[in-house]
Design a binder for these strands. Structure first.
Lengths: 246, 246
DNA sequence: CGACTGATTGACTGCCCTCAAATAGGGTGG
DNA sequence: CCACCCTATTTGAGGGCAGTCAATCAGTCG
């Protein structure tokens, strides 16, 4: 999550092509934002977007600053977090392809962002500026409704994270986040689901100390539930993670 | 928060008068829901609502169940919480006059509620059923936008609670919740702000053990920051709460 | 004056964070 | 191909915050 300064320098260099979004969408690309829209409506929305490349460490949305743009994550990975009073990053959720953010911009005036969104892997996002997003929303009421749904989902997942923090042990949170992450950023491998996460990242999102995470992972490895390698976890039996732990 | 069974028995008896809402609004009543609406528009919205009395222990909205009604808190107090796996209630936010909830109902189909909302004091709420709320929203786009704003605010305050849980000590959370609660449910008295909260309630919303809360309050009382009596706290110098604590 | 609910205080326990120091992986440049 | 470095990771020991239990005390209401 630490910023890479080089990345910032590359922002200007990063292409801002217009209308190129539809072309780069992986087939099977899905987003809650397009729920219930006709293909031609989706095309119209996509055509209005710019395509922007993103790089690790790049901050796409800054907590507290007015959100003047709306984003659709196309490829890559980002993380939404908030800063604590001491300056630590507090994980809120993953941002994966199909997710949208910055849609507070859909209101009459750009509103302060709830969280910071930072890219973790290189990839690309679709971007609408505020005026454009507003215009689209008034032409397609369903779009606004979908944005509303997305916000409601965020509310739900935020509440989940809160519950986890409030009532679960470090062990349970780790298990939960492993399973959750395997669904969102994991990819199927021959012997299980592979998740590329360092101990440090996993600890951060589970809200656990780095050493606690390391210890627990070792324990699970001994039990054959998973296999660790540097910066990657091979999850062999996710079921045992959620069932076994007290 | 513990349910009073008597209250449930009284629900049927509770009046469901139509159009009486406007008459009972305290003067100076404000709600984010009406932001930017003209007085006559507000009247139209109010006229479509039923007025419903609420009693302590009554559950107005149940976590997970589809929200078939939208609510506007008029008088009284409620609490929004979620249940943990062990069945404990996890505080999310106060619901005070002017607050709205159940507006996930504004979507095409009633969606599962994010949280349970339970009345803590007798009072009254305005109620719109799903069809009615949808109709209003399509007539008054601003209404939908306001509901969206409300949701965004909820997101922000939820994130705040999360940060507090994740990064603050029990002492800091108690201080924070005292100040927060003084603003939302406190009333000015001669010698400070009076908040009617039992130790147990305060402990629950701060996410602290009951005894921890009791001890800390005693300490603050010794320091002259507040005065305690049964089920009530007299906050003398809120400033010292936020400044002093490490 | 009981009965009940809320509050207090002390002692104990345990989870998990912190610090220190050592080990191993993986890439790079010679 | 090997030496080297940087980073990720491991493991142990220690300590503190705060939750839990038990018993007592106090306020309120009938």
């Amino acid at each position: 999550m630490a910023g890479a300064e080089k990345a910032l320098a590359r922002i200007n260099e990063a292409g801002l092509r217009r209308g190129a979004l539809a072309a780069v969408l992986p087939q099977g690309f899905k987003s809650g934002l397009f729920e219930g829209l006709t293909p031609s409506e989706i095309q119209a929305v996509l055509a209005a977007a710019r395509l922007r490349r993103i790089f690790p460490g790049e901050v796409l949305l800054h907590e507290g600053e007015p959100a003047t743009h709306s984003f659709l994550m196309v490829t890559g990975r980002a993380i939404a977090y908030r800063l604590t009073d001491e300056g630590d990053e507090c994980f809120l959720r993953w941002v994966v392809p199909g997710d949208t953010f910055g849609f507070t911009a859909l209101r009459r005036k750009p509103q302060p962002s709830v969280a910071t969104v930072e890219a973790l892997r290189k990839g690309s996002v679709g971007v609408w500026d505020w005026v454009c997003a507003l215009a689209l929303a008034s032409q397609l009421p369903k779009l606004r409704e979908n944005a509303y749904s997305v916000a409601a989902n965020y509310l739900g997942s935020l509440a989940d994270v809160l519950i986890a923090r409030a009532s679960q042990t470090a062990q349970q949170r780790l298990a939960r986040m492993l399973v959750e992450s395997s669904r969102q950023i994991g990819h199927a491998g021959r012997e299980g689901i592979e998740i590329d996460l360092t101990n440090e990242e996993l600890a951060a999102i589970a809200g656990v100390g780095l050493f606690t995470a390391s210890r627990q992972l070792s324990e699970w490895q001994r039990q054959g539930i998973l296999t660790k390698s540097r910066g990657r976890i091979l999850l062999r039996s996710p079921e045992r993670l959620i069932e076994d732990q007290p």
